[in-house]
Design a protein around this nucleic acid. Structure first.
Length: 278
DNA sequence: CGCCTTTGACCTGCGC
DNA sequence: GCGCAGGTCAAAGGCG
C-alpha cells in the first residue's frame, strides 16, 4: 500500500510538472498572439489613416474628374465578372456608389457611408446565410434580388446595442455558392474586441480577383509546435522575439495579407480557452 | 418570456 | 405617372 501511495504521489508530481509545462506553452502562445494582435492594431491604425488620406484625395479629384468617384465597381465577388452591386447606371443609383481603393482587395467603401465587404467561405452544403463575425445580428429582412435570384439576400442589424447603426447584408456568390458576400455598413458604437470579423466556423478569406485562389491563414500555434520550441534553449527567447518581429514586419508590409491575418488572429483568439483571452 | 427568423406588404428612389 | 427593384417594417410563429 505504501508503495502504491508513493507511486501515486510520484504520478501526481509528474502530472503537475506536465501541467506546468502545458501552462508555459499556453502562456508563450498567448504572448505571441498578443504581440501579433498589437502589431495588427498598429498596422490597422496606419491603414485607416492612409485610407482617409486616399478618400480625401478622391474627393478632391472628384471636382476635376467627377466620373472617378461615381464609377461603380462590379469587381466584388472574386470571379471578376460577377456583380453583387450591379447598377445599370453608376451615376444615378442611390444604393451602391462604391469606390475601389485597392484592386487586389475585396474591401470597398461607400462614398457617403463607410462600407466594407467580406468574402466568407463556407461549406458548400451549408445553405444558411449566417456569418459568425463576433457580433450579434438580428435579421430583419430577406429579399430575392434580380442579380442573383437563386440565392436571396439577407439583411441584418447589430443587436448587441439597441442604438448600434451597423447593418449587414449577406448573399451567396452567384458563381461560387460556397462563398458568402457580407457587406457591412456603418460603425459599431459599442465595444467589441473582434473588429475585423472573426470567423468561428467560417473561413474568412481574401481572394485574389485574378486567380480566384483563396488565401487561407492558419495561425494556430499548436501545442506540438510549442513543444518543439521547448527543445531550443529558453535563453534564446530574445532571439525568438526578434524572429517574431521580423515575421510580423514582413507580414505587415502587405496590406492584403494584413487584413486576412487579422481575421485569422481573431479566430485564433476566440477559439482559445476563456482564461487566455485578454 | 424574450429573442430570433420568416415572409408578405409597404416604402422609396430611379428610369422610362 | 407608372413600373421596377432594393430596402424596411411588422405580425406571426418557432425555439430555448
Amino acid at each position: 500500500m505504501e508503495y502504491s501511495d508513493h507511486s501515486s504521489s510520484k504520478d501526481k508530481g509528474s502530472k503537475l510538472d506536465h501541467q506546468a509545462a502545458d501552462l508555459q506553452c499556453v502562456r508563450k502562445e498567448n504572448q505571441a498572439l498578443r504581440f501579433l494582435l498589437e502589431a495588427m492594431s498598429s498596422k490597422y491604425s496606419r491603414l485607416e489613416a492612409h485610407l482617409q488620406l486616399i478618400q480625401l484625395q478622391l474627393r478632391q479629384s472628384t471636382h476635376d474628374h467627377p466620373q472617378i468617384i461615381s464609377s461603380t465597381t462590379t469587381t466584388t465577388t472574386g470571379s471578376g465578372s460577377s456583380s453583387y452591386h450591379h447598377d445599370k447606371d453608376p451615376t444615378s443609383n442611390k444604393r451602391a456608389r462604391t469606390t475601389t481603393i485597392d484592386h487586389h482587395h475585396q474591401y470597398q467603401f461607400l462614398e457617403a457611408n463607410k462600407t466594407s465587404q467580406f468574402l466568407v467561405r463556407t461549406d458548400s452544403k451549408d445553405n444558411s446565410l449566417i456569418v459568425k463575425d463576433g457580433y450579434q445580428w438580428r435579421k430583419y429582412g430577406q429579399k430575392v434580388t434580380k442579380d442573383n435570384p437563386s440565392s436571396p439576400r439577407a439583411y441584418y442589424r447589430c443587436s448587441m446595442a439597441p442604438t448600434c447603426p451597423v447593418k449587414k447584408k449577406v448573399q451567396r456568390c452567384m458563381h461560387d455558392k460556397s462563398v458568402l458576400v457580407a457587406t457591412y455598413e456603418g460603425h459599431h458604437n459599442h465595444d467589441n474586441s473582434l473588429v475585423f470579423g472573426s470567423a468561428a466556423n467560417n473561413d474568412i478569406t481574401t481572394m485574389r480577383r485574378s486567380t480566384m485562389e483563396p488565401i487561407t491563414l492558419d495561425l494556430t500555434l499548436s501545442a506540438s509546435n510549442a513543444s518543439q520550441e521547448e527543445s531550443t534553449p529558453s535563453a534564446s527567447s530574445c532571439e525568438n522575439n526578434e524572429k517574431l518581429q521580423e515575421y510580423v514586419a514582413s507580414f505587415t508590409k502587405d496590406p492584403n495579407f494584413t487584413l486576412a491575418l487579422a481575421a485569422a488572429v481573431a479566430r485564433s483568439i476566440k477559439s482559445a480557452p476563456p482564461a487566455l483571452n485578454p
